[in-house]
Design a protein around this nucleic acid. Structure first.
Lengths: 142, 142
DNA sequence: GATAAAGTTTACGTAAACGTAAAGTAAATT
DNA sequence: AATTTACTTTACGTTTACGTAAACTTTATC
């Protein structure tokens, strides 16, 4: 199911858990370029890969416009012009810097979640102590 | 400059490179709660920390609403109710899963960038070869 | 051959996250 | 006192990324 060569719109939508509306929108914005049989869209495995990249981009905070820029640039790059190649290398560098920033953000977030979790567990332990004390005093009183 | 105890709106805006409009918007949405001297906002270092968290959240793809949820929940958690504490632990777990996903995404992206860069460099090397051949043939022709 | 199922276009609606302009206040400077 | 500077509120405008409804075609099924 993952290595077919063509896909319908609802197949893709289901696989990646997006609406067909979204898929059509991505085509509208020039991110996907499905073939047509009559009016019906026929998606290639290249389209499928691109959809995967679009969604990952979104999870990483990229706008559709940014992702499209990358797609277009990569297509141009494949044409083999030297200027394009150099520009692509530049952009790759920039993205790497961005990824570094994101990794830092994640590391920070993890540390803070560690301390947050620790505090929660401490607070819970406190509550447990109180409960046990109550039980004890109830027993003594009975 | 980073450990003052109060800040003006423009100080914060400058430090974090956002517009004052954004800062006011964050207050409007309940993410910041600056004190007032007359009408003028006076931000505490707690507000400053929260602003930092807001912006990091954005870089990580969190909406303002999501970040606000976390803030509110954390405030409630501090009140020490057991139910809140457990809910917070749940949410922390969920976030950790999200962070794992993001780390995977980043790792994937890095791998793909590696191969992309490699292809670029290969293509450039090809172009260099062609150039040298041309030079050689020019020399021979001269 | 009717009807459902999946696809299509067109187009208006919406939530999020601000931008931007208008019009006013308050404090500091010249 | 006049003006600049920083701040304020109010409010309409804008972009992104779709949701949603209407009206229609094509294909599969009973």
């Amino acid at each position: 199911m993952a290595d077919k060569s063509t896909y319908s719109i609802s197949e893709l939508a289901k696989e990646f858990d997006v609406t067909t509306r979204s898929v059509r929108f991505y085509e509208d914005q020039g991110l996907l370029k499905p073939a047509r049989r009559g009016q019906t869209r026929i998606f290639s495995s290249k389209d499928r890969v691109r959809l995967k990249l679009i969604l990952r981009g979104k999870r990483m905070g990229f706008s559709l416009a940014e992702t499209k820029e990358l797609f277009d640039l990569w297509d141009e790059t494949l044409s083999g012009n030297e200027k394009q190649l150099l520009k692509m290398l530049e952009i790759l560098e920039a993205r790497r810097a961005q990824l570094e920033q994101q990794k830092n953000d994640i590391a920070q977030a993890e540390m803070e979640m560690d301390t947050a979790e620790a505090r929660c567990r401490e607070a819970l332990a406190e509550l447990q102590k109180k409960k046990e004390k109550q039980k004890a005093s109830e027993k003594a009183g009975a």
